[in-house]
Design a binder for these strands. Structure first.
Lengths: 234, 234
DNA sequence: CGAACCCTTGACAGAAATCAACTAAGGTGG
DNA sequence: CCACCTTAGTTGATTTCTGTCAAGGGTTCG
């Protein structure tokens, strides 16, 4: 595995406080791989063999049932995914595929479980990471159950504007069909919702979004820290 | 705090492996309180002062936005809730109220955080509990996004039948309006969905549900371990 | 006995999905 | 370099699902 990313990994909340020797043991056994776009890395239901760390690119976590499919999350550098399945040694509840060319570090689950038994700091960091993940999923469920499709989109746009440094203009970080699935609607509905938001202070031109009337958009989305974050990844 | 429940608490997955002295320290500082029905114990947004353990009764975890409200979970003995907020020392994302007369053990969050730093076994148990909670919420989101209201109800009924020892007849463990909210629909929609399931192998008479045609109900619900459990609380 | 409250039912409205067609952009291969 | 093909996105027409509003029946509890 290429050494150059190790310091960056080391700085992640999950690994930053663990003992050096344990970190080395973990990464020694790890794989560093780069995948092309649209590669399915994980099938839901399989057993969790590796903890995944996204170094470059982006990963879609999704799930299927019958003929339907939905996106549960999009993971970007540098963070981990499927930590919970890894810790429980349980089947994945979500599938994963690359959205673009993506570089991953794969740490064998058994090593992770071994080390978190001996390294208290790592265990604490794991608790923090899992808590954040849990709370993120609670937020997602609240968003879905409390807001309409338009309201979810409006809130999402405000979130993204915030993440882009509160600029009025930004570029959507994923394809619209993926965003639609994440927001719990069809691509057609997203398209129409986006258009209808012109009356509420947001316009889209391709991937670029411009917030033309923030107060109006906020009036619709009613953003709340208890639904929309801030993402509190330590 | 009454001593009689201590052994039962001690046997919970979260506390079962920790050192005796730490368990005693935790419970020494804890409160044992019984609340009447329909008491709001927690307001979302408040800071997490206590880890809650349900000893008797049941607790509804819910969240509001604008004028709307939704139930995220119902907690029954003997398990804990709001562990994630407690661990992160972050604001609750959900409110909590008693559904019936309910007895709780309240452990000060600061004590929990102190002890999980010194007791590795407790930290491991916390990881297991948080992972289970995270996975439960992923399941809830999948249920909401992949299934229609009727399908969710059908799957829920099969789940409950399973929990009741795969008997064809069982009693709903909560009021229908709470169930409706948990399943992400209005009471009216639940009422209609329940009625319509007569054609798919389930009838309700008050709180009692009878599964008259399990294969038909399964054909509709398509139960999957990746959405419907089993609950894997260690 | 009356007053809430839960649940149900009916009529209706609104939201979102579906089906289908069409445009535009990007990539491929001749 | 251009024709072609694939795919993302949009738009329109329509259906389906679910929520809303309103009213009534049945219980429970004071």
């Amino acid at each position: 595995m290429r050494e150059t990313v190790l310091p960056a990994i080391r700085r992640l909340p999950l690994f930053r406080s663990m003992a050096e020797e344990n970190f080395l043991a973990l990464t020694r056994a790890a794989y560093d791989q780069t995948f092309p776009p649209q590669i399915q890395l994980i099938d839901e239901g399989e057993s969790a063999d590796f903890l995944h760390i996204v170094v470059e690119g982006s990963i879609e976590l999704f799930a299927g049932w019958q003929e339907r499919e939905t996106t549960l999350a999009v993971v970007r550098p540098r963070s981990t995914f499927i930590l919970a399945a890894c810790m429980r040694d349980a089947p994945y509840l979500m599938s994963a595929r690359t959205l673009e060319k993506t570089r991953l570090i794969l740490v064998p689950s058994s090593d992770v479980r071994t080390i978190f038994r001996t390294d208290g700091e790592f265990a604490l960091a794991t608790i923090a990471e899992l808590s954040a993940g849990y709370r993120g999923m609670v937020r997602h469920a609240k968003d879905l159950k409390l807001r309409s499709a338009r309201e979810r989109l409006a809130a999402y746009l405000l979130c993204q504007a915030g993440a882009a440094g509160d600029r009025a203009s930004f570029v959507l970080p994923m394809e619209k069909r993926v965003l639609a699935s994440f927001l719990g609607m069809t691509p057609e509905s997203l398209s129409r919702a986006m258009k209808s938001l012109q009356a509420d202070g947001a316009v889209a031109d391709g991937q670029r979004v411009i917030i033309t009337d923030r107060p109006a958009l906020e009036a619709l989305a009613q953003p709340s820290p208890l639904i929309d974050g801030p993402d509190e990844d330590v």
